[in-house]
Design a protein around this nucleic acid. Structure first.
Lengths: 340, 340
DNA sequence: ACACCGTATTTGATCGTTCATATCCGCGCA
DNA sequence: TGCGCGGATATGAACGATCAAATACGGTGT
């Protein structure tokens, strides 16, 4: 059953080879300033030569820190596939890596409550902190972690009053900016096509649209789709109205292929007769014809901020005072024409 | 600097509460059959009540097994964004989870060689095994891990002769099947549009196309694009030829939006005048208009097989005798019309 | 020469588990 | 009654590091 697994180079091996004690080797790594220059030199060389690295488990056991951030992978919604995850995760891996942390993927097991999945990690002291994304207004995971007093950070926002260890995109402002971009290209009749799901970030985008519309003196309707099959029909409905909107603002990139098809069905050319804009800057938006104007999320800056807040929480023992909003950046691509 | 981090419930706490020894509590978890029914019952209840879980670090240190699989995240190619990662990772997290393992994301640090990134994990005994994907024919990571004798498995294939701990999609057969599907819909003039990068999996797809073409008595050319900007032009070039191909076979879904645009520019309607097929079944292919016929990869079965092989390697100490090829499944969607 | 001091290094204890082995206990049998 | 046996439970050691405290060392000042 258990194969013989060889153990590697231990601190004692190095210590013996260098003719010093355990602790000196340990210090060479964790507190080099405590060693005399020549000792440090000698020990460091041996460490490198022998390929020594402190056993992560032993270090964790003694020191109490795991150098691991657990990410609870969100349930993927087949209707609205969250391909964003790859980009966000990548940014998180990089940001955490720079801080000496690694990301551990944790799923909510089948027939397991959110709390149980979290409890598993906490009780087994597998990670130092949690990272959550796609949180709802009233998210039980947030409640649970808060109550347990376990460090965590959120991509998204917690409800006001809850711990402020969150970082989010200022979707409202980003959408206002997007509408402003359309205004600057001469659009006045705009329409909003949204996903009907009641998700916080989608609500913010719709809110931003309304504010922008008012601020830039535009007019236009909103419509919502319940699933992928409705997109074309609902989008056509919007384009059919008179006066015809010259721009279609989507609350998410995933609606774009449907919107393009709707325009075509109406005899309109996207990027010429009608503008289409998205949100998220998914990789494939660049490939669409014409490439889609959309909002790019500053994933790397979000990840950096999340890691900072996490480390801060770990040091202080309490979450930061305030959440952080970062600006999303509208990226102008050919799907938005100028109108006279 | 270091906040006081409280330690949780330990095995001794439970032992004392139950009036038994450490080992009995340990056995209640790891070897329940060794306990008398009533003892087991009593101890188990307390374990649950007190929320006890073995400290992962302590357990790992003593037993030598980490219950962690490290996944070396591939460098993302901005030209051909690998959104597949999210689906594959998700499947891996589930498959590994079922086997009691978790996935740790590891990046190749900046200015760090592949070998160093691997060495870090191996020497610090952070993971029990590695998982690699996107391996090239002559992949240094495979060489390094083989030489180091560290357990690993590969999504993709290693070169013949190398350890056989791999699982891959039978892309050749999948592409043959796809061509067969086109044949069964009456297509005879086909064209192949591929990515010019010399990647093993892309070569297999092209090879499958050629075999299928011959087998089903079809005729047609191949063309390759160097980057996203060329897709439409090259696709139009293929559609321009006489006799005009009735089907455009892509080596990857990412080419689809460009192919659709090319068809439209030629005055052709995809799904009516011309068929387009992809490969990978990326989430957005379902959203395209018309939805794209493509090859679905059995991600969950791939993940299961990878985990199995990994566990087997861990137990036996040597990789399995042979690699494993799994069938990809062509998914018929409206982008493929029947021709008379 | 000796006490003193700060720095460099070593030593002993400990983190929480599992492994390997020892002890305990009840029961059947000579 | 005493012995052996096997299953249930307990004990000692070890995993490999860091923490906390002790000791060795080299130089100064008196």
């Amino acid at each position: 059953m258990s194969a013989h697994r060889p153990r590697g180079v231990s601190i004692m091996d190095v210590a013996r080879a260098a003719g010093v004690s355990r602790q000196t080797v340990s210090n060479a790594i964790n507190a080099p300033h405590k060693l005399r220059a020549d000792t440090l030199e000698r020990v460091s060389t041996l460490i490198k030569e022998m390929g020594y690295r402190a056993d992560q488990s032993a270090r964790s056991l003694r020191s109490g820190t795991r150098q691991v951030i657990a990410y609870l992978t969100p349930e993927t919604d087949p209707a609205n596939p969250n391909a964003l995850m790859s980009g966000f995760l990548e940014a998180m891996v990089a940001a955490a890596g720079d801080a000496g942390y690694r990301i551990l993927l944790v799923r909510q097991g089948p027939g397991q409550s959110e709390a149980q999945a979290l409890e598993d990690i906490i009780a087994a002291r597998t990670a130092d902190a949690f990272l959550l994304s796609d949180v709802l207004d009233d998210d039980r995971r947030v409640d649970y972690l808060t109550e347990a007093g376990f460090p965590f950070a959120v991509f998204g926002r917690t409800r006001p009053g809850a711990p402020q260890a969150w970082v989010d995109v200022d979707s409202v402002q980003a959408m206002i900016d997007m509408v402003g971009l359309l205004a600057s290209h001469g659009h006045r009749q705009v329409a909003f096509l949204g996903t009907s799901a009641e998700l916080p970030w989608l609500r913010h985008r719709a809110a931003g649209f309304r504010i922008g519309k008012r601020r830039f003196g535009m007019v236009g309707l909103e419509a919502y789709v319940d699933g992928p099959d409705e997109v074309v029909a609902v989008a056509r409905g919007l384009l059919d109205r008179l006066p015809r909107p010259s721009a279609l603002v989507l609350d998410d990139d995933w609606l774009a292929p449907g919107a393009y098809a709707a325009a075509q069905a109406e005899g309109l050319t996207v990027g010429v007769d009608v503008a289409v804009t998205g949100f998220n800057d998914m990789p494939y938006t660049r490939l669409l014809q014409p490439p889609l104007t959309t909002v790019r999320l500053p994933l790397r800056r979000i990840a950096d901020a999340l890691v900072n807040r996490l480390l801060q929480t770990l040091e202080d023992g309490v979450p930061p005072e305030a959440g952080l909003l970062l600006a999303g950046e509208p990226v102008l691509r050919p799907s938005v024409p100028s109108v006279r």
